[in-house]
């Protein structure tokens, strides 16, 4: 009897320990570090209260990076939640099932390729004499050609576009699975009652896959907050800092300038933002119930 009751706790312990040591412990140490002026080269640490946070909020780079993260989140939400639900629904309603399998695979494939490779691939596409500009030339849209990643107005949007290309297929797959779980009787009943396709989509499909929409929203928002690889590979925050996000300025401050304390402060801001966004998720869930 006793054994049976202890057993579950014993099973939890290893996972819990790993979590404590590699996740929670660093988080708390990081909060401590963010109040220090810590020089990487000499290893000297000095307690400076909120100086790191104050200089972060006053800096120009924080404003740009924060704006870019928000842009990332909004655009990703539109594509990876909004448009991919529509795609999923269309593919599930196609007359020719084989064709829908083909499309599904085509959309899903990019999410299987490593981000590093995608980043390099798209630097070639976006080059001044790259694929995108060549296509524009062929279509007699030569006026629109430019160095996409080297222009401060287009750099961040070019990178966000790559992310959408990569991830929309992934969330679409999640929605397809959810849609397939909807009992066919419900759809048939709606059909008999004379519901149009649009009405079925709005009043049956969407409410029944609401949980999946929530999960995708969480994935998309946290992805937009933590984005790093694409930017690091394609522009490294350039040109002149116009495509920096919070994680790239954190990285640069920590490992290029050697300001560990300041970088820790940025990390905590990212952590706090993640908390706020996930809290919003929970609040909406509560109100639904």
């Amino acid at each position: 009897m006793l054994k049976k009751k202890i057993a579950p706790y014993l099973y939890i312990i290893p996972g819990l320990l790993i979590l404590l040591i590699f996740v929670y412990y660093p988080i708390f140490r990081n909060i401590e570090y963010s109040f220090l002026k810590w020089d990487l080269f000499s290893g000297t640490k000095k307690f400076v209260k909120f100086t790191n946070y104050l200089s972060l909020f006053r800096s120009d780079e924080f404003g740009v990076a924060f704006k870019n993260n928000i842009l990332y989140i909004i655009i990703s939400f539109i594509f990876q939640v909004g448009i991919s639900v529509i795609f999923a629904s269309i593919l599930e309603n196609m007359k020719y099932k084989k064709l829908s399998t083909l499309f599904r695979t085509t959309f899903f494939l990019p999410s299987l390729i490593s981000l590093t490779i995608i980043g390099l691939l798209f630097t070639f596409i976006y080059k001044t004499d790259g694929l995108l500009n060549s296509i524009l030339e062929v279509m007699h849209l030569g006026d629109f050609t430019k160095g996409w990643l080297g222009d401060e107005k287009t750099a961040i949007f070019s990178i966000i576009a790559v992310s959408q290309w990569k991830s929309t297929g992934y969330t679409m797959m999640l929605f397809i699975v959810a849609i397939q779980k909807i009992p066919t009787e419900i759809n048939e009943a709606a059909k008999i009652d004379g519901a149009t396709r649009l009405k079925t989509f709005l009043h049956i499909t969407i409410p029944l896959i609401k949980d999946m929409i929530k999960i995708s929203t969480i994935i998309t928002i946290s992805g937009g907050l933590l984005v790093f690889n694409e930017i690091f590979i394609m522009t490294n925050g350039g040109p002149y800092g116009s495509s920096e996000v919070l994680s790239t300025i954190m990285y640069k401050n920590a490992f290029v300038h050697g300001n560990i304390g300041y970088a820790s402060a940025i990390a905590n801001v990212i952590l706090l933002l993640s908390f706020v966004f996930s809290a919003l998720q929970f609040i909406t869930k509560e109100s639904d119930n």
Partner: peptide, 8 residues
């Protein structure tokens, strides 16, 4: 080079 800020 034209558009040199985008050129590697």
């Amino acid at each position: 080079t034209p558009e040199f800020n985008s050129v590697s």
